[in-house]
């Protein structure tokens, strides 16, 4: 299922390939204020591959990701099982839609913030090499306010990789970027994340088709998961290819693009000039 049959070369000089493991979620359940977001949900994240999670907005994609990251408090239950029989918590790196860079720290200081927060000695050489790989070597000393949106998200990517965790959970990390920057960052991320087990939440079907090894669609209330077929070809796939475009159309339909009952506003509105008595129907 993974992109390569053997461990790919490490992109950031860390020895994590031995630690790869599959993750299963069994009977996942999250409710807010007695409303089930999802229950009895099963999900499989194969080791060393990018799984994408698509779905209409508000369906609970982020909640599912945050649940796996251990960030949801309250009414939650379910089993998260790793194939190496070790708990998942503490082995996850998290990247959000906002870059979450601390504005008072320089880019370099932001990249090493994880070690600082754990009270460890930061590996500054590795931070420098990661910043170089994401193309921010010259901006390492700047504060985030001096960077563009794309640069900030690249810094966030470097910080995520700096954590050197086998699992990376990404919550719409590219959605705030313009299309060109988004494509570039997708390529960069797909390259840098090779060898890690990734769950990527996105609302963009093309993004999932471009860099996903597996694509899951979350739909309904309470939400259910459906795994869909993924186009062939190596990641990042060409968005212009016929196969990807066909998948795109199918995926859009699956996401409810032509569901009549989901879109009541399509029905023609009553004429404004009609009398009030004419509206009983």
């Amino acid at each position: 299922m993974a992109r390569t049959d053997f461990s790919p070369p490490d992109q950031d000089g860390a020895l994590h390939s031995l630690r790869s493991f599959d993750i299963w979620l069994r009977h996942g359940h999250v409710a807010f204020d007695d409303v089930d977001i999802f229950h009895n949900l099963d999900l499989h994240l194969p080791a060393r591959s990018i799984s994408c999670l698509l779905g209409p907005s508000g369906v609970g994609k982020s909640t599912l990701l945050r649940y796996l990251a251990g960030l949801v408090d309250g009414d939650v239950s379910g089993d998260i099982i790793c194939s190496d029989n070790t708990p998942l918590s503490g082995r996850v790196a998290y990247m959000a839609q906002q870059d979450l860079l601390l504005p008072w720290r320089s880019v370099h200081e932001n990249v090493v913030v994880g070690a600082i927060l754990r009270g460890e000695k930061p590996d500054h050489d590795r931070a420098r090499s990661l910043l170089e790989k994401v193309g921010l070597a010259d901006a390492a000393h700047l504060r985030p306010a001096a960077l563009s949106g794309g640069m900030r998200q690249r810094a966030a990517l470097a910080r995520t990789l700096m954590e050197d965790r086998p699992v990376v959970l990404m919550d719409e990390p590219f959605s705030a970027l313009d299309p060109i920057n988004r494509l570039k960052l997708q390529d960069l991320s797909a390259r840098m994340l090779a060898g890690k087990t990734v769950l990527l939440v996105t609302h963009d079907p093309l993004e999932a088709l471009r860099i996903g090894d597996h694509i899951h669609v979350l739909r309904g209330a309470p939400a259910r998961l459906v795994e869909t077929v993924v186009p062939s070809g190596t990641i990042p796939r060409d968005v212009g290819s016929v196969e990807v475009m066909q998948h795109h159309g199918a995926l859009l339909r699956q996401l409810g693009a032509d569901d009549a009952d989901d879109a009541p506003e399509i029905h023609p509105p009553a004429p404004a000039s009609a009398n009030a008595e004419g509206h009983h129907g």
Partner: peptide, 8 residues
């Protein structure tokens, strides 16, 4: 959230 996942 970030701090929590980092084990701060």
């Amino acid at each position: 959230d970030l701090g929590r996942t980092m084990g701060a």
